[in-house]
Amino acid sequence: MSDEEKKMKILHVYRSEPTDDVKTLVGILSRDRDASEFKLYDGDPNYDVLVGMIFANDRTVSWW
């Protein structure tokens, strides 16, 4: 594992409740990385928090 990979910060945004397949992919993508998540489907999202998280991460994946 490279140092660069160790440092990667990845944010998973869920637009709806994740399916088992999405959970499998998220697990692989998050392995050995600093991973966090944000649920857009859960009540009234705090978009200020979301934007802050996006800019604090190296990569964002927004699942269906």
């Binding site: 397949d21 499998t24 992919l25 697990g27 692989i28 993508l29």
Partner: peptide, 8 residues
């Protein structure tokens, strides 16, 4: 699916 995850 697992191979896809690794590729991605």
């Amino acid at each position: 699916l697992e191979e896809l995850g690794e590729k991605m």
